[in-house]
Design a protein around this nucleic acid. Structure first.
Length: 298
RNA sequence: GCGUCGGUGGCGGAGUGGUCAAUCGCAACAGACUGUAAAUCUGUCGCCCUAUGGGCUACGAAGGUUCGAAUCCUUCCCGACGCA
C-alpha cells in the first residue's frame, strides 16, 4: 500500500516546519489541510507558510480558493485526492499537514460526501425557521437522518434537508475502504508554551500587517460581512478597522479565539487513537524521524 | 462632612420577603461533528454526600425584624455621582 504521512496538531504547534523538514529528508511534498489557508490573499492572517519557509519543498492546496466564496470540505477532499495521486506518481511522499480535523478525516478516512451542491435559495429560506421547525421538515423528508442528527444544530439541519430534497434521501453515512496507509503524527505543546506561542504568533501577525492585508482584500471586493466568517483573526481585525472595537479588545478577543480553537482542535484529535503524539518543544524530532523511517521502510 | 444611588457566584449583570444555590451572557470544563468545520451545536458549572434525592455554606460585614430575608430595619466598611 502506498504511504502517506499526516502531520496534525493545534494551531502554532509547529506543523508546517516539521512538514518541510520531513519533506526534505524523505522526498516529500506537502499538502496543506487548513480550511483558511486555502484562500488567496489570506496570508498574514492565517500564518500561511512563506516561500522562503518552504525551502524548495512543493506545497499544495494553499491559495486555491477565492475568499469571496465559500470553500467546502468536499472541494478539499477532491483536490487532495488528486494531489495525492500526482505526488505518488512522481514517486514522492505526500505529507498532509494542517489543523483542520475534518479535512484530514475526509481524506484519511475516505469519507463519502454526498454530491449535493449548496442551494443558496433554499438555505436562505430555511435559515428563517427555527431549529425545531427544521427538524420537523427533515423528519418528514428523511426519518433515518433525523434519528442521528443534532436537532438543535441549524447548520446541519439545513444541510441535511438540502441533501434530502436533492437526492430524495440522505445517503447512508459511509466511508470507502482505504487505499493508502497513513502515519499520523500529532504535535502537542504543553498549555503554557502553547499559550505563549499563540500570543507571539498573534503579535507577529498584527505587526506583519494583517490590517493592510484586509484592506487589500476589501479593495478586491471582499465585504466586511465576509470577514466575520473567514476566521477569528480577520473577524476582530475587521471590527477594529470599523471602529467597533478598540485595539486592546481586539487583541484579547483574538487570543481567546485562537486559544479556544486550539482546545476544540484537541477535542477532535483526541478521539483518533491512530495519532502518535509528540511534544515538539522537547526536541522530539529524532523520535519522529525514527517513526517515519519505520513507516516508510527506509 | 452631608446627600443620592449602589455593593450578588471567576467576570458582567438579573432578582427586590417564601417556589433562589439564585434568570441570562461571558469565561472555564467536558463533548458532538459526513459539502460553512477558525464554523455549528450539546452538557456541566458553590461545596459535600449512600446522589432523577439529601446536607452544608452563600448574595460587602455585623446585628435585628419575621414562621421565613439576596430582598425589610440599624450600624459599619467600600464604590460612583451630586452638594459642600
Amino acid at each position: 500500500m502506498q504511504k502517506i504521512i499526516v502531520i496534525l496538531g493545534q494551531t502554532t504547534s509547529g506543523k508546517s516546519a516539521l512538514a518541510v523538514k520531513l519533506a526534505r529528508q524523505f522526498k516529500g511534498e506537502v499538502i496543506s489541510a487548513d480550511s483558511r489557508q486555502v484562500y488567496k490573499g489570506l496570508d498574514i492572517g492565517t500564518a500561511k507558510i512563506t516561500n522562503k519557509e518552504m525551502r524548495g519543498v512543493p506545497h499544495h492546496l494553499l491559495d486555491v480558493a477565492n475568499p469571496k466564496k465559500q470553500f467546502t470540505v468536499a472541494q478539499y477532499k477532491k483536490m487532495a485526492d488528486r494531489k495525492i495521486k500526482e505526488i505518488l506518481a512522481r514517486k514522492k511522499v505526500p505529507i498532509i499537514a494542517g489543523g483542520t480535523g475534518f479535512y484530514i478525516d475526509a481524506v484519511t478516512k475516505n469519507l463519502i460526501l454526498p454530491k449535493v451542491p449548496p442551494n443558496k435559495k433554499l438555505r436562505k429560506q430555511l435559515v428563517t425557521k427555527g431549529a425545531s421547525a427544521l427538524f420537523v421538515v427533515l423528519k418528514k423528508l428523511d426519518p433515518s437522518r433525523a434519528k442521528t442528527i443534532d436537532k438543535n444544530n441549524k447548520v446541519r439541519l439545513i444541510r441535511a434537508i438540502e441533501i434530502a430534497k436533492y437526492l430524495g434521501k440522505v445517503p447512508r453515512l459511509e466511508s470507502k475502504p482505504l487505499s493508502y496507509e497513513f502515519l499520523k503524527i500529532g504535535l502537542k505543546l504543553p498549555e503554557k508554551k502553547l499559550k505563549r506561542k499563540i500570543k507571539n504568533g498573534l503579535r507577529k501577525r498584527i505587526r506583519g500587517g494583517m490590517a493592510v492585508e484586509l484592506h487589500a482584500l476589501r479593495a478586491r471586493g471582499v465585504p466586511w460581512k465576509r470577514f466575520m466568517e473567514l476566521g477569528f483573526d480577520q473577524r476582530y481585525v475587521a471590527l477594529y478597522l470599523q471602529r467597533k472595537m478598540n485595539e486592546k479588545e481586539m487583541i484579547e478577543k483574538q487570543f481567546l479565539g485562537n486559544w479556544q480553537y486550539a482546545k476544540r482542535q484537541m477535542t477532535w484529535f483526541k478521539r483518533d487513537p491512530e495519532i502518535k503524539w509528540f511534544d515538539p518543544s522537547l526536541g522530539t524530532y529524532k523520535d519522529i524521524k525514527k517513526e517515519v523511517k519505520k513507516f516508510l521502510g527506509v
